[in-house]
Amino acid sequence: MKIGIPSNGNDLSQAFATVFGRCSHFVIVDSTDQKNITTYPNEARNAAGGAGIQAAQSLINQQVDVVIAPRMGPNAWNVLQGAGVKIFIGINGTLQENIEAYLAGKLVEMTGAASFGPGMGRGQGRGMGRGGGRGMGRGQG
């Protein structure tokens, strides 16, 4: 199974990127052979608008089955959903930690675009930060 993750570099020790559509690289890992890593620069990061869509399309073209992302704009989410890709909410940490968390079943599935994240009611606790960048997919050139 192929897992796609937004990253800011091209190895698994990198921090998980906090934006989806405008991250610098995507890293694709084969869950059955974790040494099998593909990385490619995210061309969509320079898009005037629709970066999330273009990024999602590139992951689909790579035939990923799962995407781990911090948060995602509605457009990118719709593209991945439409292609049957499962999307999970990543944790704050390295790519390696995210993959381990996913394989251990610790990640939560994303059930809607931008419909979760640090909803910050009055007095709500600390540790809600680092919600991370919502994908810029809805950019409107």
Binding site: T18, G133, Q140, G141
Partner: peptide
């Protein structure tokens, strides 16, 4: 309320 405003909301907690 257009695109630049939406972009400025990225990461905002408040």
């Amino acid at each position: 309320i257009g695109c630049p405003v939406i972009a400025a909301l990225t990461n905002a907690k408040l």
